[in-house]
Computed example of a mutant assay.
Amino acid sequence: MTVRGIRGATTVQQDEEQAVLQSTEALVQEMAEANKIAPSDIISVMISTTVDVKSTFPAKAVRSIEGWKYVPVMCFHEMDVPGGLPLCIRVLMHANSDTPQSDVEHVYQNEAVKLRPDLQK
Rank of each mutant, 00 (worst) to 15 (best):
P39K: 15
K69P: 04
M46K: 15
G8E: 03
F57W: 05
V113D: 06
Q109F: 02
C88A: 11
L85G: 03
V81N: 00
L27Q: 04
T49Q: 06
A34L: 05
D98M: 12
A61M: 03
L119D: 07
R63P: 01
K54R: 02
V73N: 03
A38T: 02
E78Y: 08
L21R: 03
T10I: 09
V12T: 05
L119V: 12
T11W: 08
S55Y: 00
L92H: 13
T24Q: 07
P82Q: 02
R7F: 15
R7Y: 15
I37W: 07
S23T: 11
V62S: 05
E25C: 06
L92I: 10
T24F: 10
G84W: 00
H106P: 01
A26H: 08
W68Q: 12
L85D: 03
I37A: 05
V51F: 06
E111N: 15
M74A: 14
I6G: 06
V12G: 04
V81I: 12
F76V: 01
I47Y: 03
T49L: 03
H77D: 00
V53K: 00
T99Q: 13
D52G: 09
Y70D: 14
L21I: 06
V51W: 04
K54S: 05
K36H: 12
H77L: 00
E33S: 09
L85C: 10
P117A: 10
Q22A: 09
I6N: 08
L27R: 02
A59C: 13
S55K: 02
L92D: 07
M31E: 07
E33L: 13
M1A: 04
L21E: 01
E111W: 13
L85P: 07
G83A: 10
A95K: 06
I43Y: 09
L87I: 08
V91P: 05
E66H: 02
T50N: 01
A59S: 12
V62T: 04
A32H: 07
E33A: 13
P58V: 04
Q13E: 13
T10S: 13
V91C: 11
M74S: 10
Q13V: 07
L21G: 01
A32L: 11
R4D: 08
E25Y: 00
R7S: 11
A26R: 10
V91N: 04
P39W: 15
Q18Y: 14
M79V: 03
K114W: 11
A38G: 01
T2I: 04
N110K: 15
V107R: 11
L27W: 04
Q14R: 15
H77P: 00
T10Y: 09
N110T: 13
K69N: 06
D80H: 14
H94C: 09
A32F: 03
E78M: 09
D52T: 05
E16M: 09
V107F: 10
D103Y: 04
P72Y: 10
A32R: 09
I42L: 15
S64N: 03
T24S: 11
A112D: 00
Y108R: 06
I89F: 05
A34Y: 08
Q120T: 13
E17S: 12
P58C: 02
M46P: 03
V62C: 04
R90M: 08
V62A: 05
